[in-house]
Structures are given as C-alpha cells and as structure tokens.
Design a binder for these strands. Structure first.
Length: 479
DNA sequence: TGAAATGTTGGGGCG
DNA sequence: ACGCCCCAACATTTC
C-alpha cells in the first residue's frame, strides 16, 4: 500500500496533515513535488522554490525517502508515477486559489476513476473558507466580525511533530535533478540580495518564528509600522510556501503570551495579522473574481490611465518620492517589502498615477518571494478601494507624511536611495523642498542624480478624487 | 491600516 | 480690567 505525498504549498515535514496521513498508513511513502508549467511563477518565487525544495529534499532523504521531482501537467504525472510505483493512494494538502481548486477537483475525480485513493487535507488555514459563515449564512465581507469569529475558534488543533522516519519504496524512483529546472537566475544572477536576506526551508522558518516571538513580538504593535526597523515577523514567505504551518505560528504565539504576559498585546496583534491572511483566502474562495476583477463592480468602470513612463518609474524606484523609491528598490533587491511600504507604493500607483491595481499586483507577483495570490490581490483591492472591507478611495497616502511618520530618521530612504543619503532629515522625504545649498552639500542634482517627482502630490490627489467622482457619475448615467 | 479642510477653543499680547 | 484679535492646538468634517 504505497502512498504518494504530493507536496505543493506545504514544503515541510512537521504539522503536515497529508504526510501524517500517509505515514499513518504504514506503507511506503513517495514524497513528490511537481513543477507545473501551467502555473506561472515569478522570478523571486522561482528562486525561493529552488532553495525550499533543496531543503525539503535533504530533509526527506534524511528520513529515508528521497523527494521525487517531476515537471509537467499534474494529472498525467500522478497517474504515471502511480503506474511506475504501484502506488494506490495519493494525498495532498488543499490550496484555495480558484484555478487550483478547479484543476484539483477534476484531477481528483480522474484519479478516482482510475481506482486510486485520492485524498486532500487542510494544511494551510486555521479554518477553511467554507466553514466560516455569518449568522445569516453568508461569507464574511468585513474583517472585524471575521476576526472575532475566527478567534472564537481558538485554541486550534495542536501542530503535529514531523515523522521520525519515511519508509521508502524498495526500488528507486526516477526524479528530475533540481538544477535541470533552472529555477535560479543566471546571466545575470540578480539573486545576491535575496541570498543576503533569506534562508528558505523548514528549519530556517522555525528559527525565524522563534526569533520573532522571543525578541520582537513584545514591541510588535508599535514597531511593525516602522519601515526603518526590523520589527515585523518576516514570516510571509515561509507561510506562503508552507515551510511553517499556520497552526505552528498561532500556537507558538499563544504559548509566548502564556509564558510572558508582557508580550500578550504583541501576540494578539500578530495573530490578528495572521487572520488577515485567513480573511484574504476566505474572500478569494467565496468571490473568485477577486483575483481578476474589482470586487465592487462599480470600480470596473474606473478611468485608469496608461502611462508606461510612470509605470516604469514606479517599478524602478524612480518616482522622485523617496519613500516610494526606497520601497520599490528594496523589493527588487530583496524580494520583499515592508507591509506599510506596500500600502504606500500601492496607493501611489493607484491614486497618484491612476494606474490599474492589476498591473501593480502583477509586478508584486513577479518580484515578491511571498507572492500569494489571495493576500496580494485582496491587499491591492483594499488599497484601491475596490475590495471588500476596503480602504475608502478618498484615503490617499501622502508619501511625505508617511515617510516622516514611519521612517522618521530617513534611515530606510538612505539605505535604498543612497544618492539622497547626505540630505538633512528635514528634506529627506521631500528633496524638492530643500534649498539649493542643502542640495549642493548633499551632492544632489535634481533631475540628474535623483528624479524630480513624476507627479505633484496636491495635483495628483485632486486628480484621483476627480477620477473617483467621474466613475460615480458614469454609474449614474448608465443606470 | 489618512490627509486636508474646516471648525472650535483658550491663552496671551495688546490697546 | 476688559474686549479684541491672533493663532496654536485640538476636534470635527469632508474628501
């Protein structure tokens, strides 16, 4: 009774329900990862995946059963592998993106039709989207009541330990070599910043979680907004790839609060952030169009503009707004961006430049190591104002004020926009207001060494509000 | 998980 | 002493 364990966004051995099920059956286990060419992966995601698979592969081998790598359409490959190995069961942990659900549903019945025992498990959410409803039986549209209900389910099931051993098949199973997949960039190798920033894999994820809870969680409520400090959990990518489970994160946080009452507020704030991840998955599950269209239909008529020069300035970090540019360059270099910075740059693209949020979401998915469809799309729609429980459209971030509040010493800007490093604190977030002598002393030539602002803030703000008004009047005339 | 515009209040300078 | 004005500080409303 051989079982194929199909790893997906659950690249860990501990607290992995599908793997635990396979081990409990007692027969041989074949750990498998499939690279599906039909599923687009951004460059940063490919880099992360390579290293996470490397880590998983070592961990599987150490327990006795090597990880098998195959590339191609999953349904075909699973049938082929079952035929090769005589496996009778296939298990995996569920994913909740609409296209993946559709694919897996078809695939599952195809496997069953061939007499295979195919089972799926919840390995990535505290509560599955279908299990959470309001009193009236509707899915949640507002975060706060969602959060109350979710928190009411706690304590959640305790995470399970990793298996001590994986019983391998007697005969070796053919596997691709990871390097053949060319997931790492070469010519040029742009991943130096990623290597310096991240360590993918289950062991590193556990360390990160532990360090965060030991060191940073107590000050999390205040420090998590500071772009110049490392006050966030930096767990998004580890959670996205399933190197740490949501149950592990929740429980470890809860135990931290029990052991250290002074950390309780921080733990609560952290768990609330975990709940945003659940909320995004919930929204995307119940409203699959969230990924592609405005959740609020009216916003499908929003008068977006096309301006390639502006879009390029945004992606390259050359908008002339220091905080925006620092954040965009950090993203490009490291594959991540501070949560507050994500809100600021998203607001800037959507409201200052009037560029469709989908272009920003696409860019994030290309460049983020934690590119998660639900989180990303729900987040962009939240900023754009078109989402469920979204920020109102008129809430327009002022990049200067945000910089002054959340990068008060300009350290974040100086790190990523070194051409401004010599500028006095008073001007670091608004170099255009610096007097000539200050620019001279800092060695800055506006328009040469650092761009002029691509748009004027006051003008852009009014233009965005006008665009919203025109959208609304279009709605009226269409009715 | 904003910011700007507008309104209100109260202390101090000053005639 | 008193009223008036100014304006910072804070509150409310509007976008």
């Amino acid at each position: 009774m051989t079982t194929i364990v199909w790893f997906r966004k659950d690249l860990r051995l501990a607290d992995n329900p599908a793997l635990a099920d396979a081990c409990a059956r007692g027969g041989p286990v074949i750990p498998l990862f499939i690279l599906d060419p039909a599923e687009p992966l951004g460059g940063a995601s490919r880099w992360w995946l390579h290293h996470s698979l490397e880590s998983l592969s070592q961990a599987c081998a150490a327990l006795g059963a090597p990880l098998v790598l195959r590339a191609g359409p999953p349904a075909d490959l699973l049938l082929t592998l079952a035929g090769e190995t005589g496996a009778t069961s296939i298990v995996w942990n569920r994913r909740y993106e609409p296209e993946i659900i559709a694919r897996d549903t078809v695939l599952k019945s195809a496997l069953a039709a061939k007499g295979l025992d195919a089972r799926s498990f919840n390995g990535s959410l505290l509560v599955e989207p279908s299990a959470l409803r309001t009193f009236s039986g509707e899915p949640y549209k507002v975060f706060s009541p969602f959060w109350r209900t979710l928190a009411g389910f706690a304590p959640f099931a305790a995470p399970r330990p990793a298996p001590h051993v994986l019983r391998a098949l007697a005969v070796p199973v053919v596997s691709d070599a990871l390097d053949e997949w060319s997931l790492l960039p070469h010519a040029p190798d742009w991943a130096a910043g990623l290597r310096a920033t991240w360590q993918p894999g289950e062991a590193a994820a556990a360390t990160r979680l532990g360090d965060f809870l030991d060191v940073d969680v107590a000050s999390y409520p205040v420090m998590r907004d500071r772009m110049d400090k490392a006050g966030t959990s930096r767990l998004a990518a580890h959670l996205h790839w399933g190197e740490v489970s949501i149950h592990q994160a929740w429980q470890a946080a809860a135990m931290t609060a029990d052991a250290n009452p002074a950390a309780a507020a921080g733990v609560g704030a952290f768990q609330r952030q975990l709940a945003w991840r659940e909320f995004s998955a919930h929204l995307l599950f119940h409203w699959p169009h969230l990924a592609k269209k405005a959740w609020k239909p009216a916003y499908e008529n929003f008068p977006w503009t096309d301006n390639e020069a502006h879009f390029t300035a945004w992606t390259k970090g050359r908008t002339g707004y220091p905080v925006v540019d620092a954040a965009m360059r950090a993203l490009w270099a490291t594959g991540t961006m501070h949560n507050r910075a994500r809100m600021i740059v998203a607001s800037f693209l959507v409201k200052h430049l009037l560029i469709d949020w989908r272009r920003g979401a696409d860019w994030f998915e290309d460049t983020l190591v934690d590119a998660d469809l639900a989180n990303n799309r729900a987040g962009w729609q939240w900023v754009a104002g078109s989402g469920s429980d979204a920020s109102p459209y008129f809430r327009i971030f002022n990049p200067v004020l945000q910089g002054q509040k959340f990068d008060p010493d300009g350290a974040f800007v100086r790190q990523w926009v070194p051409e401004l490093a010599g500028l006095d604190n008073r001007f670091i977030h608004q170099p255009w207001s610096a007097p000539g002598h200050a620019l001279d002393e800092a060695g800055i030539l506006p328009g040469e060494t650092y761009p002029h602002p691509v748009v004027d803030h006051d003008y852009a703000r009014k233009r965005a509000l006008d665009a919203l008004a025109s959208m609304k009047s279009n709605q009226l005339t269409e009715v």
